[in-house]
Design a binder for these strands. Sequence first.
DNA 1: TAGTTTATTGAGATAGTGAATCAATTTCAT
DNA 2: ATGAAATTGATTCACTATCTCAATAAACTA
Lengths: 143, 143
Amino acid sequence: MNKNTKEITALKDHLAKHQLKLTRQREHILNVFLRTEHVTAEQMYRQLAKKDPHIGLATIYRTLNLFCEAGLAQARHFGTQTQYDNVSHKGHHDHLICTSCGKIVEFENEEIERLQEEVAHTHGFTIQTHKLELYGLCSSCRH
Amino acid sequence: MNKNTKEITALKDHLAKHQLKLTRQREHILNVFLRTEHVTAEQMYRQLAKKDPHIGLATIYRTLNLFCEAGLAQARHFGTQTQYDNVSHKGHHDHLICTSCGKIVEFENEEIERLQEEVAHTHGFTIQTHKLELYGLCSSCRH
DNA sequence: TAGTTTATTGAGATAGTGAATCAATTTCAT
DNA sequence: ATGAAATTGATTCACTATCTCAATAAACTA
C-alpha cells in the first residue's frame, strides 16, 4: 500500500481548491482507478459493483470526470465509448492502437511534442493538451 | 461546376466495386459534403432538410459512413459527436482546436508524420492512419 | 461533540447519438 | 420495359452519459 499517497494528496489539493469534499466513494474509486491503465466508466462500475455498499453509475461518471479536472485522468473518445487513462504515475503519453486485435501501446516522444508546440505557435495557439493516436497493425497481426 | 468530377468518379468506382448503387441521395449528399471541411451527421441533415424532397437522417449516417469506406471522408470522434472530415481534395491533415470558441485550424507537418512512422516502427507497428489533435486557446480567446 | 451548512450520492428519468428494422421505392443490368 | 437487388425513410431500438432530486454524508463552527 501507499504508493498512492501522492495521488490522494493531489486529489485532496484539487478538492480543497474547489470546495469539494473527500468522500468514501471518491477515495474508493481512486484506489481502483490507480491500478488500471485504461478503463471505461462501465468497466469501473462492474468492477466496483461487487463491493457492498456499491457505488452508483452516475457517481462513477462524475468521479472520473472529476479526476480529469484534477489532472489524474485523461478522457479519450475511442469509438463510441470514452476511455479514462491513468496519467498520474507517468506523464502524458500517446497511443499506438492495433486495429486488428485492439492492443494499445503507450509511447512518448519529446521531439513530436516540441514540434506540436511549434505548429501551435505559428497559428497563434497556446496548447493545453493534445491527443495523438496512431492506428495500424501490430507485429503479430501483420502476420 | 465540376471540380467534383474526380470525387464523383471515386465514389462511382467504390460503388461499382461493392455492388452498390448510385442514388439521387448519395449524389446530393456528396455535393454538399464536398463544400464543407468538417460536419456532423446532424448538421448535414439540417443542411439538407431544407430541400424537397428531403433526405432522412438514417440515410445521412449511412452515406457518411459509406464515404469513409470509399476514402472520401474520415470520421473523427469529437466529444460525444462524430465529425466527418472532407479528405478528398487535400491529404490527411491534423487539427488545432480552440477549447474556448471551438475554432478548428488544420495543419500538416511532414516532420511529425515522419517521427510517427519512426515510433510505430520501433514498436513493430505498421501505421494505417492516425489522429493528432492539439487543444488549446486561439489568439483571440487568450485575451 | 452536537449542530449546521453545503456538497454528494444513488436510483431513475432524460437527452442525445448512431444503428437496426422493414415495407415501399428506386436503381440498373438484361 | 422487366425484375432482382439495393436503398430509402420513418420509426424503433440500444447505448452512453448527464440531469433531477430527496436522502445522506462531509466538514466547518461553536
